[in-house]
């Protein structure tokens, strides 16, 4: 058992545990904290795969930006802090069964999977390569993504903004 394998097991365990805790905890803030554990351990998995740039982005965007925005959302809105679990036991059992079946189907597929030889040059200037690819071959999807972000921005503003009349009444 190599060190890499042990590290992967630990990270995967934390990621899964974070996800499960997020689903089962009842307080919103606790859920966010559980989610952070998942995000950070996935960043760790990226490092194991020699994708340092993606790992850094994962930490910055997910563990940083998204978590902070969630916390802002919790702070700034009126909400009931406690959620209660819904759904009948039968429904839960069916969901569990479906999840297990899907897990089993995927596991059967990937257990003996042989990908041929491993790529050798993984560590060579990752960030630079991503940058070069983005600004040459993938410049069309890149520009399209900026339109997408603009649309998301406009949407966020008009959906969340207080209308003038409403603001005036307060």
């Amino acid at each position: 058992m190599s060190g890499e394998y042990i590290a992967f097991l630990a990270l995967a365990l934390v990621a899964l545990a974070g996800g499960i805790f997020m689903l089962n905890l009842t307080k919103v803030v606790h859920m966010v904290v559980a989610l952070v554990f998942t995000f950070v351990s996935i960043a760790g998995v990226y490092v194991l795969l020699s994708a340092e740039f993606i790992a850094a982005v994962q930490v910055l965007i997910y563990s940083g930006a998204i978590t902070i925005i969630m916390l802002f959302g919790i702070m700034l809105t009126r909400h009931q802090d406690d959620g209660q679990s819904t759904g009948s036991p039968l429904r839960k059992a069916l969901a569990l069964l479906a999840t297990l079946a899907f897990g089993a189907a995927v596991y059967v597929g990937i257990r003996h999977l042989d990908f041929g030889e491993e790529a050798a040059a993984l560590h060579e200037k990752n960030t630079e390569q991503i940058g070069v690819a983005l600004y040459t071959n993938y410049v069309i999807p890149f520009e399209l993504t900026s339109v997408l972000l603009l649309v998301a921005l406009v949407g966020a503003i008009i959906l969340a903004k207080k209308d003038d009349k409403e603001a005036g009444e307060k």
Binding site: Y138, I140, P141, V151, A152
Partner: peptide, 17 residues
């Protein structure tokens, strides 16, 4: 695949709004 996916998302997010 990447352009297809970004196009799909651009359509979806615009329609959500």
């Amino acid at each position: 695949l990447i352009t297809l996916f970004v196009g799909l998302e651009l359509l979806s997010i615009s329609s959500y709004i």
